[in-house]
Amino acid sequence: METSRRNFLKAGGACLLGLSLWPAVRVLAGDGPDVKADAGALKGKRWGLVIDMRKCWPQYQQGCRDCMLACRREHNIPVIDNKDEEVKWLWTEPYKNAFPEQEHAYTPAAIADKPFLVACNHCDNPPCVRVCPTKATFKRPDGIVTMDYHRCLGCRYCMAACPYGARSFNFQDPRPFIKEENLDYPTREKGVVEKCNFCAERLDKGQQPACVEACRVGALIFGDLDDPNSEVRKILAERNTIRRKPELGTHPSIYYLV
């Protein structure tokens, strides 16, 4: 059979139309997710974390790194020596670097030189979610800002958008750099971004975040910011806390007691 140019174009057009209908077909034909939520899952409207650095420092000075090590084990975080390509979820920064706007020449020495735990702030108004072109970074209904590592393009727009330096990119295959692998959490491939996820996978099983559970002195307090009776809300009501870069309108969910 001769195919005229006209017929070829017609067939091509029909095929294209079919392709564009495909997502709709999938939605209509699918019967929804077959994963059921755990009955014991922790439920919150907006998870938040209060970090009491005064409790932390004496331990930290004695070499305690329990929270960071627990986080690394839980999430298969690679240990990469090269500072430029480090993957960091939870780490420390000096006061003047973590709170550049609050630091002044006469900051008490008891604070100025001390390390502060920093991580993704799980902003209520997260710029990383706003800029992501594929919704690979998204905010869950419980306020956690998390990622789908399988959808991420590796465009790194979120890294440009995050004002807290909380995002890391896998410049190379991270798997050879994982010390001990936790089979309950995925490892990542090269070319995707990652960051702290407030242990969403543990909350869904009814557990506290790994760093909170690991802390021996209770310096990390996790809870629902939306619940006036939660422990975090009680602390926030009683004591003065600070947040990182509040002037940017991102509304971080991590509060610091200093």
Binding site: L153, C155, K190
Partner: peptide
């Protein structure tokens, strides 16, 4: 510049007008 160029079409499969 993409870390995962083979996923380029995710921009079309999951169009995100806020980006």
């Amino acid at each position: 510049d993409l870390g995962k160029p083979m996923r380029l079409f995710n921009m079309i499969f999951y169009p995100t007008p806020n980006s």
